[in-house]
Design a binder for these strands. Sequence first.
DNA 1: ATAATACTTTACTAATTTTGTCAAGTATTG
DNA 2: CAATACTTGACAAAATTAGTAAAGTATTAT
Lengths: 152, 152
Amino acid sequence: MLKLSTKGQYGVRAMFEIARGYPENPVTIKEISERQDVSVAYLEQILNKLRRAGLIKSVKGPGGGYLLAAEPDKISIAVILKELEGPVAITSCLDPEEGCARVEGCVTHLLWRSLGAKIEAFLETITLNNLIEQEHLLKGDRRDKIYRFDVA
Amino acid sequence: MLKLSTKGQYGVRAMFEIARGYPENPVTIKEISERQDVSVAYLEQILNKLRRAGLIKSVKGPGGGYLLAAEPDKISIAVILKELEGPVAITSCLDPEEGCARVEGCVTHLLWRSLGAKIEAFLETITLNNLIEQEHLLKGDRRDKIYRFDVA
DNA sequence: ATAATACTTTACTAATTTTGTCAAGTATTG
DNA sequence: CAATACTTGACAAAATTAGTAAAGTATTAT
């Protein structure tokens, strides 16, 4: 339950690859495709959304590619997922687009709202920079710090 | 994003209705159907799963219906949802049934795992009894305690 | 100039999941 | 023994997901 679509998953992984090139090295779709094993055509869709949302910039021509539009510690996982999948909305009646007929006096409504808020709050605390840091820990020998996200 | 299916939503609402009858009053499918506006046939599917999981008991014959199999404060939302929708698995590679080829050195994997753990932990703290309490607060005048789930 | 590289956009579709309905029972008891 | 209630399994329409495909436009190294 509570699955994330591949669009969201791939989007985060793509942003992670682009973040590695920050601030000078444009990363091409092809590179992302190869490293993350996602088709170029599908990535185009995803990166397009992220570019229009202002999270990344693109550089055309040979040697071009994608660049982060802000510093890696300013871009949260929450922002990326919101652009690709819309707001956290455990139930459809919590989606701002839809609305709910039974809001008043509905106990489960409160429950789902609280859960959604908790999820958002968590995802807002994690940034691309945290992912990069975490990878360094994984590849390095600082095994003592390894499950950092559990602490946050 | 991160939607819950209607099966999970209706299941929690049905359990809430059954909890109101605890410990003596069997609640019929028809009553649940009317109060929660879900078809009888669909509820049958849902309640069947919950009964087989041992969360509720059924009493046949006139005056029969469904009863909670345990005390309302012993049944968490997490348990109900797990029976109806399987474990929390933000990505399919985190589903115990599937597995993941890239676990080692995969940073996002850690992220999704942490998120899933947080969600489960939260849902385990909320019981049917909490829902009933919360409803009393909503209907009563203790407006000061109203958003209880946010605190938990 | 122009070929190579790279991004952009829109349309389409196969597969999967969700959200149920339907039919034909079985079990219990007043 | 009829009324009430639960039980089971098959089936299917609708929505969503997860992509592919095609036909571009833009930039720049040489």
